Simulated scan of single mutants.
Amino acid sequence: MEINLQDLRLTQKMERGKVLVVILDGVQGKAKVTEAVDHRSIIIETVKGKIAKIKYNEGELL
């Protein structure tokens, strides 16, 4: 992943066979890429407008 902090531009390539979640934080000028895993939910927690945690909650198909 490539971040240009002058104009806050991000370049991220897709990965074949994967679903990726890109989180853009314009407050801190950061970006985070995480994989969306099968049968889980992703919760992004913030504190005072900043990313604090990324949680993966398991689930299952019935």
Rank of each mutant, 00 (worst) to 15 (best):
A31E: 12
I51F: 05
D7E: 12
V37E: 14
L24T: 07
K32A: 07
K30L: 01
I42K: 01
K13S: 12
Q28S: 13
R16T: 05
V33A: 03
Q28K: 15
I44Q: 05
A31H: 15
T34N: 08
G26C: 00
R16Y: 11
V22A: 03
T34F: 09
K32V: 12
A31W: 11
Q12P: 00
Q6P: 00
M14A: 14
D25V: 03
I44P: 00
V27D: 07
V47G: 08
V19L: 13
K32E: 12
L10Q: 04
L5Q: 06
E35C: 01
V37M: 10
K18R: 15
G29A: 05
Q12L: 01
E35M: 04
K18M: 15
M14I: 08
E15F: 08
G29C: 02
R40Y: 11
L5F: 04
R16D: 07
V47H: 13
I23Q: 03
E45R: 15
S41D: 09
R16C: 03
R16S: 09
T34S: 11
E45F: 11
H39C: 13
I23K: 02
K48C: 04
M14C: 10
I23H: 02
G26S: 04
M14R: 12
V47I: 10
L20V: 03
K13E: 15
K50V: 07
T46C: 06
D7P: 02
L24Q: 11
E35P: 02
K30Y: 00
D25R: 00
R9S: 12
V37P: 01
S41R: 09
A36Q: 09
I42D: 01
R40D: 05
Q12A: 06
L10H: 03
E35W: 01
L24F: 10
E15I: 14
R16N: 09
K50I: 05
Q6E: 13
R16F: 07
S41G: 10
R16G: 04
K32Y: 15
V27T: 11
K53T: 06
T34H: 10
T11K: 04
K30C: 00
L8I: 05
L10R: 03
K30I: 00
M14N: 12
I43H: 10
V19N: 11
V21H: 07
K18G: 08
I42E: 01
D38N: 14
K53R: 14
I51S: 01
I44C: 08
G17D: 10
A31Y: 15
G29S: 07
V37A: 10
V37Q: 13
E15Y: 07
K13N: 14
G29L: 03
E45W: 09
Q28Y: 05
A52S: 14
L20A: 09
D38Q: 14
A52Q: 10
E35H: 01
T11Y: 06
K13Y: 11
K13I: 02
I51G: 02
Q12M: 03
V19G: 05
G49T: 05
G29R: 05
V33W: 01
V37L: 13
I23E: 03
G17N: 12
L8T: 04
I51K: 07
I43R: 13
G29E: 06
G26Y: 08
I44F: 05
G26L: 06
I44S: 01
I23W: 04
I23D: 04
T11F: 02
E45M: 11
V27A: 09
V37T: 07
